[in-house]
Amino acid sequence: MSHFKKLSSANKRSTEIVSQIKTHLLNGLLKPGDKLPTEEELVEQFGVSRTPIREAIKTLEAIGIVQIKRGEGMFITKQPTSVSLNPLIFSLLLLNESLDKLIEFRQHFEVMMMNVIKSNWSEEKIAKIRQVYETQKETLVSDISTEKLVEIDLTFHFAILETTENEYMMEIGKTIYELYKPKMLQAKHTFDVEKTLKAHKYHLELLSTKEPLTQKQIDEMIKYNKEWIG
Score class of each variant (00 low, 15 high):
86 N>Q: 04
126 I>R: 05
21 I>E: 12
114 M>N: 11
125 K>V: 07
89 I>N: 10
75 F>V: 00
29 L>T: 13
153 D>P: 03
179 L>V: 06
180 Y>N: 01
168 Y>L: 14
179 L>S: 04
142 S>M: 12
111 V>W: 07
49 S>H: 06
60 L>C: 08
216 K>G: 03
104 E>W: 13
21 I>Y: 07
143 D>Y: 12
15 T>C: 03
58 K>S: 11
230 G>A: 04
228 W>D: 02
75 F>I: 01
216 K>Y: 03
118 K>L: 00
222 I>V: 11
67 Q>T: 07
166 N>G: 01
146 T>F: 03
230 G>T: 09
27 N>D: 07
31 K>Q: 10
64 G>Y: 14
201 K>T: 03
45 Q>S: 05
89 I>Y: 03
103 I>K: 09
63 I>E: 03
195 K>H: 14
135 T>V: 15
29 L>E: 15
23 T>D: 07
163 T>D: 13
30 L>T: 04
116 V>A: 08
56 A>E: 14
101 K>I: 01
1 M>Y: 12
112 M>H: 01
126 I>Y: 07
203 H>A: 14
211 E>Y: 09
171 E>H: 12
202 Y>M: 14
49 S>E: 08
28 G>D: 04
42 L>P: 02
148 K>M: 01
122 S>Q: 06
88 L>C: 05
110 E>Y: 04
55 E>C: 11
143 D>R: 13
56 A>G: 14
18 V>M: 10
161 L>V: 04
102 L>S: 07
213 L>R: 01
142 S>K: 15
208 S>K: 07
32 P>W: 05
204 L>R: 07
128 K>W: 05
90 F>E: 05
41 E>H: 08
165 E>R: 06
190 T>R: 05
154 L>I: 09
117 I>M: 01
2 S>C: 13
216 K>A: 04
